[in-house]
């Protein structure tokens, strides 16, 4: 792995009100790799993911996107709002609660950032957005407002919105946890297709089957520590740590 990792966390730690939620996390994600992040609730999975695009600021450690420091530079100086924004534009995030913008239609949600952040011409943005909406199976809803959509449809639009910025890495924060069970499948299917397209993805999830079938690597967080990292076959059949064995036993 001589190539620069798309995401790298080095010694990332963070506390909320004196409680350590991340302890000295080291993680590298290579281009095209799908990394699933597992762990009990409160183990720090989401916080770790949110440190990657600096929605949470680590107290210590460095985060790099494609080798470039995000948030603070190599000298530890806070970067400008503008510089931070343009680095974030190179990542895409999909949230548990979708977070679509309710005053905009499906199509407008998808083209908003390409047009106003990347400043690409509207006609081209629309063309690309429609292709992405077709990819996630939402092309027929281009003029609908989010409140008319089901959870699964909202999440697929949110995925198209993240893809529209042509990000170098997609960050998924429990993308199916807020969905009715019968809607989980349609979102996972889209994510599976993205992994086959070669997207680099970091997925915080409770979907064991998905993690097993789609990931290249599975990492496990326990009380803010990254205690296991392994390819899925090994992770699910022969985990090293006793904590992971217990976790898998209760989640089978």
């Amino acid at each position: 792995m001589s190539e620069v990792p798309v995401v790298s966390l080095e010694g990332v730690s963070k506390s909320f009100n004196g409680v350590e939620v991340l302890r000295d996390i080291h993680l590298e994600v290579a281009r095209g790799e799908v990394v699933s992040v597992l762990g009990a609730s409160g183990s720090g999975k989401s916080t770790m993911l949110r440190c990657i695009n600096w929605l949470e600021q680590p107290d210590r450690g460095t985060v790099k996107i494609n080798g470039e420091h995000i948030g603070v530079d190599a000298q530890g100086k806070q970067m400008s709002v503008r510089a931070l924004a343009s680095l974030r534009a190179r990542t895409g995030m999909v949230f548990q609660s979708f977070n679509l913008w309710p005053h905009l239609t499906v199509l407008q949600n998808v083209i908003e950032a390409p047009v106003h952040v990347k400043r690409i011409p509207r006609s081209r943005a629309v063309e690309e957005a429609l292709a992405l909406l077709d990819k996630v199976g939402m092309g027929h809803k281009r003029d609908a407002y989010p409140y008319t959509l089901s959870g699964g449809q909202k999440q697929r639009v949110a995925i198209a919105r993240a893809l529209a910025m042509a990000p170098e890495v997609l960050l998924f924060d429990e993308p199916t946890s807020a969905l009715d069970p019968e809607l989980v499948g349609e979102v996972l299917a889209v994510m599976r297709a993205l992994s086959l397209d070669g997207y680099t993805m970091v997925v915080v999830t409770h979907e064991m089957e998905f993690a097993r079938a789609v990931s290249d690597q599975v990492v496990f967080l326990d009380k803010g520590k990254l205690i296991e990292r392994a390819p899925p076959e090994r992770f699910f059949t022969a985990p090293e740590s006793e904590r992971v064995q217990r976790f898998l036993a209760t989640h089978r």
């Binding site: 929605l55 503008r82 924004a85 974030r88 190179r90 995030m93 950032a113 106003h116 952040v117």
Partner: peptide, 14 residues
């Protein structure tokens, strides 16, 4: 909504 703001930040809006 904080969530909507985060979605905006996450795709590179100032």
């Amino acid at each position: 909504s904080k969530e909507q703001r985060e979605a905006a930040m996450a795709c590179g809006m100032t």
